[in-house]
Amino acid sequence: MNRKINLVGLVFVLFVCYGFHSSATIDFLVPPNWPTPNYNFDKNPLTKAKIALGRHLFYEPLLSRDTSISCSSCHSQYTAFTHVDHDLSHGIDDRIGTRNSPSLMNLAWSNTFMWDGAVNHLDMQALAPMTHEDEMGDDLLNVIQKLQASSKYPILFAKAFGDSIITGEHLLKAIAQFELILVSANAKYDQVMRKETTFSVQEKSGYALFQTHCNSCHQEPLFTNHQFANNGLEIDTTLNDKGRMGITKEAKDAQLFKIPTLRNVEFSYPYMHDGRFEQLSEVLNHYVKGIHKSATLSPLLEEGLPLTHEEQIDLIAFLLTLTDKEFLFNPQFSFPRK
C-alpha cells in the first residue's frame, strides 16, 4: 500500500516537474553583435511546449484543405526553408502560385513578411498560405476543427497553453514560436566575425567587394535591411507582378520587392521573387549587365555593378561562407518523429 502511494507520489512529482519545465519561459538568445529583435517576445513568451507544438504544426498536412501540403512542403529545412527546383511555388491540386517561396530564418528581426510586405506580423503570416486557394486552400476554422478532432493536438495545445480548446490565436502563436527559433548564425562568416577562423584569400576579396557593392541593401549581419527595392528586373508579362504597389497602391512602389537575406543563399535557389535565376552567377550577371531601367529602379543600381569576371567569382566565394550547415541540419528543426 505504502509503496503504491509512493509510486503515485513520484509520478505526480515528475508530472509537476515536467509541466513546470515545459511551461518555463525560454530566453531568446541574440547572437553577439546582432541588433535587437523586432519581435515582441513579451506578448508570446517562448516555452518548450509551445515551440514543440509549433514544430508539429509546421510539418502538419492537416493545415491544408486536402491534407496534402504542410508549411514544410514549400519551406524545406535542407534548402534553407524554401522550395527549390520550382520558379513559382505550388500548392494543393498542383496549383501554381505567382511567386517563389521565401527562405525562413532569423524572422525575429523582420518587420514585414512576404515579397510585397503584405503581412505585418510574424504571428499572422501563416494565415496567408493556409487560406490561399493556390497554396493550402483551407480556412482557419476548418483547420482548427480538424486539429481539434485529432488525437494528438488537443493534448499538445493543453500542454502548451493550458487549454485543449484550440483557438486561432494559439495556433498562430505556436507556429510563430517554431519559426522564431529558426536562427542561422553559425556560418563560416559568423565564425570569422567571432575570430574562430579566417577567410581564404578569395573569400576575403569577395567580402571586400560585398561591402562595397552589396551591403547597403543586404546589410550585415542579417544580410538584409528589411526594405523594399526595385532591383532592375524586367517585368515578367506572364505575371505582371507589381510587388509592393499591390499593397500600398502607390506608383512609387511599383516593382518593389522585399530585399531577401543572403544567408544560406547557396541552398535557397532559384532566386528573385519569381525564381527566374537558377544560379548565383546568373544573379551577378543581372546586377552587372542586366539592369532594366524603370521609374522606380533603385538609384544604387542605375549604372549596374562594375564587377569583373574574377571579382564575381570572388564574390560568390564569399556568398558561400554564408552557408550554415548547423542550421540546415539542426535536428531540432526537422520533422518531429515522435
Binding site: 515582441n40 506578448k43 508570446n44 503584405a118 503581412v119 505585418n120 506580423h121 510574424l122 504571428d123 499572422m124 494565415l127 496567408a128 493556409m130 487560406t131 490561399h132 482557419l140 476554422l141 482548427i144 483557438t167 486561432g168 490565436e169 494559439h170 498562430l172 502563436k173 510563430a176 499593397i247
Partner: peptide
C-alpha cells in the same frame, strides 16, 4: 492591427481578418 495574434473577439477565426493584406 500590428500587434500579432489576438484572442477573444479579435481571434482571426472570427472572419474579420484579412490574411493577404494584414
Amino acid at each position: 492591427n500590428v500587434s500579432g495574434a489576438m484572442g477573444g473577439d479579435l481571434d482571426p477565426t472570427k472572419g474579420m481578418y484579412w490574411a493577404w493584406n494584414s
